[in-house]
C-alpha cells in the first residue's frame, strides 16, 4: 500500500498499518532494560526510573535482574578492563532483539579516566552501541531522550529486505567475542568488525 492511499484512508477515518509497524510499535513501547550499573552514571539511571523522571512513561520501568528477560543494556558508568568481559558476556546472554545504550562519558570513551591504565576507552570497542549519551553524568532527561531515540530507531527497523534489523539478519553475529582479562590488558583490545580507530592525520 502506498503512502498516498494510506493518508487518504486515514482522512476517512480508516487506520491502516503493516505487520512490521505493528510489531515494531509494540516492542518499542516495552523496552526492558537490564538491571545493572557500573559507576556514578547508574545513580542517574536509578533517578530516571524513580517517580520524578519516571521512565515507566515510556514503558521501560521493568528493569530485569536477568539478561534472559532484557531487551536493552544501559551501560551506565565506567567500564573497567576487569569488568569489560563480564559486560560483553551479559550482552551475549541477552536474547535478540537487543540494544545497547552507552550512557556517560566513561561508557562512550573512558571519560575522565581515559588516560588511566585500567579503564576501557569506550564499550563500543566490543559491543554494537545504538545510542551514545554524552555527559558526566548525563541527566535523567538525557537518558529518557536516548530511550526515545532508540524507540524511533526500533520503529524504523525493517524486518526483511536488503538491510534488515540486526536480530532479523541471519548473517549478523548472535554473540560477540568476549575479551580475556590478562595480566597486562584485554585481548583482543577491540572487536575489529565493530570498531576501528580514527585515522591519525599526519602533518604534511
Amino acid at each position: 500500500m502506498n503512502e498516498g492511499l494510506r493518508s487518504e484512508l486515514s482522512k476517512q477515518g480508516v487506520f491502516t498499518t503493516t505487520l512490521q509497524e505493528l510489531y515494531n510499535w509494540g516492542r518499542s513501547n516495552s523496552v526492558w532494560p537490564l538491571n545493572f550499573g557500573l559507576a556514578c552514571c547508574a545513580i542517574e539511571m536509578i533517578a530516571a526510573s524513580m517517580a520524578r523522571f519516571d521512565i515507566s512513561r515510556f514503558g521501560s520501568e521493568v528493569f530485569r535482574p536477568s539478561p534472559r528477560q532484557a531487551d536493552l543494556m544501559i551501560v551506565a558508568g565506567t567500564v573497567t578492563k576487569k569488568m569489560a568481559p563480564l559486560v560483553v558476556r551479559l550482552y551475549n546472554q541477552m536474547p535478540a532483539p537487543k540494544y545497547v545504550i552507552a550512557m556517560g562519558a566513561c561508557a562512550i570513551s573512558g571519560g575522565p579516566f581515559k588516560q588511566g591504565y585500567n579503564v576501557l576507552k569506550g564499550i563500543d570497542r566490543y559491543l554494537p552501541v545504538d545510542v551514545h549519551i554524552p555527559g558526566c553524568p548525563p541527566r535523567p532527561e538525557a537518558l529518557l531522550h536516548a530511550l526515545i531515540t532508540l524507540q524511533e530507531k526500533m520503529r524504523g527497523e525493517p524486518l526483511a529486505g536488503p538491510a534488515p534489523a540486526r536480530h532479523a539478519d541471519p548473517s549478523a553475529p548472535g554473540e560477540y567475542p568476549v575479551p580475556a582479562y590478562g595480566p597486562y590488558d584485554l585481548t583482543p583490545a577491540k572487536n575489529d568488525e565493530l570498531w576501528r580507530p580514527a585515522p591519525l592525520p599526519r602533518g604534511e
Partner: peptide, 13 residues
C-alpha cells in the same frame, strides 16, 4: 543464533 555464551548459565556475567 545460539552460542556457547548465550547457552551458558547466567552468573552475573
Amino acid at each position: 543464533k545460539p552460542g556457547p555464551a548465550k547457552a551458558a548459565p547466567y552468573e552475573c556475567g
